[in-house]
Simulated scan of single mutants.
Amino acid sequence: MTTTVRAGASAAVAGPERGDGIDHGTPRGYRQHHAKGVPYCGRCRKANRDEKRSYNEAKRASAAQQSWNRGKVGTPSEPRLRPTGRECPDAACGTAATEPQASAHLVVVAVDGSREPARWYCAGPCAAYGQALAEIRTLPVVDRA
């Protein structure tokens, strides 16, 4: 395997070769460049820089942020639909309460201090499931690392 670098050019501007066994554009590719002694390509340098930036942002999060969302930073993702453990005929059952009430028979389930966001549930077994889920999510998270 040969990497061609023009005279006067630095090793950082060397381009990726086909079939060199490196996953270009990924942090893994950056490490493969290092392990093989091959000059880093721009895509791998950028992927490594982005990974380090993300890691450092999480590391700089306050203690409150780290305990609340395990060090994750940025905008939260949309909460996904929670199944109630049984087939519910209403498609709106379990949707986030940030949306308007879809049906008149839906009730909002929200528990103070819960990591589970407020959601719309059908009255009865679905609401009981939502209430139990929200209450469980008030318990402290134990890291098993």
Rank of each mutant, 00 (worst) to 15 (best):
L139V: 01
I22Y: 04
T98H: 11
N48S: 10
R115V: 02
D23N: 05
A104E: 14
A12M: 03
R18I: 10
R53V: 09
W68H: 11
G25E: 01
I22G: 04
P100Y: 08
K72Y: 12
P16A: 04
S62P: 08
S77R: 15
K72A: 14
P39W: 10
K46P: 00
T26F: 06
V109I: 15
V109R: 07
A47W: 03
S114L: 02
I136F: 05
C93L: 03
A63D: 11
A96R: 01
A145Y: 08
G94A: 04
G130R: 12
S54N: 09
T138R: 11
Y40C: 07
A61W: 03
R49F: 15
K52H: 07
A132E: 10
G21N: 01
A92N: 14
A128T: 14
G19N: 10
A123C: 01
H24I: 03
K72D: 08
Q65L: 08
K36N: 12
G21E: 02
P16D: 04
S54F: 04
A11F: 13
R82S: 12
T26V: 04
E57H: 06
P125A: 13
P39I: 04
Y129I: 14
K59R: 15
A11N: 08
A134K: 02
R70Y: 08
V142Y: 07
C44W: 01
V38E: 11
A127L: 10
R70V: 08
A64C: 00
L81W: 12
A58T: 05
G15S: 06
A12D: 14
C44L: 03
A102F: 07
G29N: 03
Q101Y: 05
H105F: 10
P125M: 05
R80S: 14
G94F: 02
V107F: 07
E17D: 05
